[in-house]
């Protein structure tokens, strides 16, 4: 049984060499030495099948095939083990101190006034308002006269308003955009006008010569004071949070009638009274009211047919309340230690 002995010897020799193979290239060599199609030791041995007597052939064939399968599977197994070892070795050498910080790209910050303006714009856009724009250097007529602010009104004093000439001012409110819009188009009107306004105050913790407003104006048939209430209530619930309540109380502006100061419930103390709300539970946010008929007279609207409401809110104030800013100069100093918080 020379053939079968030979097979046994090949098997034993393979076992010895396999034990010595330490890397994947020697495994590949082993594979070639035993199983290569042309010169593999087992391949050549198996070719001797035809030389064997017929009665020995089945046993030889069976043994040879079993050996071949064993060599293949043991090589594959060994290779997988080696690959695993190599991978872990590589993982070990490649390991990082992952607790080091990531390479963070520098990302810029938006100004809080821009953030608040965009948030308020989005609330009104969703309600179907159109955004309008107007000049900051404005006529005295649009800023005062057309808004029913008479020539003797104290807000026209040089101590309160910046004048370029008798006829031109730095607008003290965004309300002149109301006039520009109404002079340009008939009702229905539903607009907001964000923009920069100026009042002659020195910059201190609670005043600024320049600040930002959003004016709102709705004129249509059947617009009521209740619509104003509902609109501002929605604004405040969306901007400050669903729990925020809105309160209108009577006030006076020459261009609205009835007029209202608009308060929101103080979220700092949940309306129990604190420093922010001056212990009233309410924070004054803006002025609003039903458009005064004298304003319609100025722009030629039919007061019998149309009614409407207007409001003017200070974006800076909304931003300060929402983000807890207690000092106005922070908004204009452009200190990165402040701005990078947004």
């Amino acid at each position: 049984m020379a053939g079968i002995d030979d097979l046994r010897q090949i098997g034993e020799r393979f076992d010895g060499e396999k034990a010595r193979a330490a890397d994947r290239s020697s495994l590949e060599e082993l594979h070639a030495r035993y199983l290569s199609r042309k010169s593999g030791l087992l391949t050549l041995e198996m070719q001797r099948l035809r030389e064997l007597p017929a009665d020995q052939r089945p046993a030889f064939g069976k043994l040879a095939n079993r050996l071949k399968q064993r060599i293949e599977s043991e090589l594959a197994e060994r290779e997988a083990a080696l690959a695993g070892e190599e991978r872990s070795a590589r993982e070990e050498t490649e390991a990082l101190d992952v607790s080091l910080p990531g390479s963070r790209p520098r990302i810029g910050h938006r100004h809080p006034i821009t953030l608040a303006r965009r948030a308020i714009e989005d609330i009104f856009l969703a309600m179907g308002y159109t955004v309008e724009d107007g000049p900051e250097v404005e006529t005295t007529y649009n800023n005062f006269d057309a808004l029913n602010i008479g020539p003797e009104h104290p807000s026209r004093d040089e101590s309160d308003t910046f004048y370029i000439s008798d006829d031109i001012v730095l607008r003290t409110q965004t309300s002149p955009v109301q006039i520009r819009t109404m002079e340009r188009q008939p009702p229905p009107i539903r607009i907001i006008c964000p923009g920069r306004v100026f009042r002659r105050d020195e910059l201190d913790a609670t005043h600024s010569p320049m600040f930002h407003q959003i004016e709102g104006l709705v004129v249509d048939e059947g617009i009521s004071f209740g619509d104003l209430k509902g609109t501002l209530d929605l604004l405040h619930r969306q901007f400050f949070g669903e729990r925020t309540r809105t309160r209108l109380r009577p006030s006076y502006f020459p261009f609205t009638e009835p007029s209202a100061e608009v308060d929101v419930s103080c979220e700092f103390c949940e309306s129990r009274g604190c420093r922010v709300c001056k212990h009233t539970g309410w924070i004054e946010m803006m002025g609003a009211g039903m458009v005064h008929p004298a304003v319609y007279d100025c722009v030629g609207y039919d007061t019998a047919r149309y009614s409407g409401f207007a409001f003017g809110l200070g974006i800076d104030r909304y931003a300060m309340l929402k983000y807890g800013i207690d000092d106005i100069p922070l908004l204009f100093q452009n200190d990165m230690r402040f701005l990078s918080q947004f």
Binding site: G108, H109, T114, L203, S208, M210
Partner: peptide, 12 residues
């Protein structure tokens, strides 16, 4: 913002 610039607001 993506380029890393922070917005400022200055008195006019």
């Amino acid at each position: 913002a993506g380029l890393g610039y922070t917005e400022t607001c200055s008195i006019a």
